[in-house]
Amino acid sequence: MADDFMKTYLHDYLKDVRQAVLAKVDGLSEYDARRPLTMTGTNLLGLIKHLAIWEARYFGAVFDRPFPEPLPRWDVESERLATMWATEHESRADVIDRYRRVREHSDATIDALALDAPGHVEWWPDPEVKLFDVLVHMLAETSRHAGHADILREEVDGAVGADAESMARKRHDADFWAARRATIEQVARAADSAGNGVNR
């Protein structure tokens, strides 16, 4: 009984976080959905592609329930790095549709197996795992990338929130946020000048 509750709780949380990631490309141009926004090239559509590929692997082959579409190799660096961005031949719809198919496949695995069902993650130092381990790992990984997506989307157009409705709702104007940013900048400079918490 407790295991069923825990599995449902973790699974529902994963479903919510997945939706939050998808919402971050709503209303964006192709360019803004794909453009690199960090030194390493992190971008919104690439995060979705990356999450789809790794979720397909974790809830697929790890439990001997392989996702029925080809996946790039995890042990070849060039293929692994290519999971972080969409090519010009991969449409946004293609990337999002694949994530939806992966989610359906993953959900079927999660629904079919008990939390203590065994799996094998060959790229982990301790490869013998349970569904619980992988569910927690994918929830943490998806949440981590959802946080990246929050920051990237804010950088693109200032939209914040976990869904399209909250991102569209403007609570404050640009002047409010400029003033807030200036205040935080001033405090950061004052703290630096004062030497608070210095590691020099």
Score class of each variant (00 low, 15 high):
residue 160 V to K: 02
residue 165 E to H: 05
residue 182 A to P: 05
residue 152 L to N: 15
residue 150 D to M: 01
residue 172 H to S: 02
residue 158 G to P: 11
residue 159 A to T: 09
residue 175 D to I: 01
residue 138 M to V: 13
residue 141 E to A: 04
residue 143 S to M: 14
residue 163 D to H: 13
residue 138 M to R: 06
residue 143 S to A: 15
residue 157 D to F: 07
residue 167 M to L: 05
residue 158 G to H: 03
residue 155 E to D: 11
residue 155 E to Q: 15
residue 183 T to M: 10
residue 162 A to Y: 08
residue 149 A to K: 05
residue 171 R to T: 00
residue 170 K to A: 15
residue 182 A to Q: 00
residue 156 V to L: 15
residue 171 R to I: 06
residue 172 H to Y: 03
residue 152 L to S: 11
residue 173 D to Y: 00
residue 154 E to A: 15
residue 145 H to S: 11
residue 138 M to H: 02
residue 145 H to Y: 09
residue 175 D to K: 00
residue 151 I to M: 12
residue 185 E to Q: 08
residue 140 A to T: 05
residue 157 D to Y: 06
residue 183 T to Y: 09
residue 168 A to F: 02
residue 172 H to E: 01
residue 172 H to N: 05
residue 156 V to P: 04
residue 158 G to D: 03
residue 158 G to I: 01
residue 154 E to N: 10
residue 177 W to C: 00
residue 151 I to E: 08
residue 145 H to E: 06
residue 162 A to L: 13
residue 184 I to E: 04
residue 180 R to C: 07
residue 180 R to G: 08
residue 145 H to D: 07
residue 167 M to Y: 04
residue 158 G to W: 01
residue 183 T to H: 14
residue 142 T to G: 03
residue 142 T to K: 10
residue 139 L to C: 13
residue 137 H to S: 10
residue 138 M to K: 05
residue 172 H to M: 00
residue 150 D to R: 02
residue 148 H to M: 04
residue 151 I to P: 10
residue 166 S to E: 04
residue 148 H to N: 11
residue 181 R to A: 15
residue 156 V to Y: 12
residue 185 E to L: 14
residue 161 G to T: 02
residue 154 E to D: 15
residue 168 A to K: 11
residue 165 E to N: 04
residue 142 T to I: 04
residue 164 A to V: 06
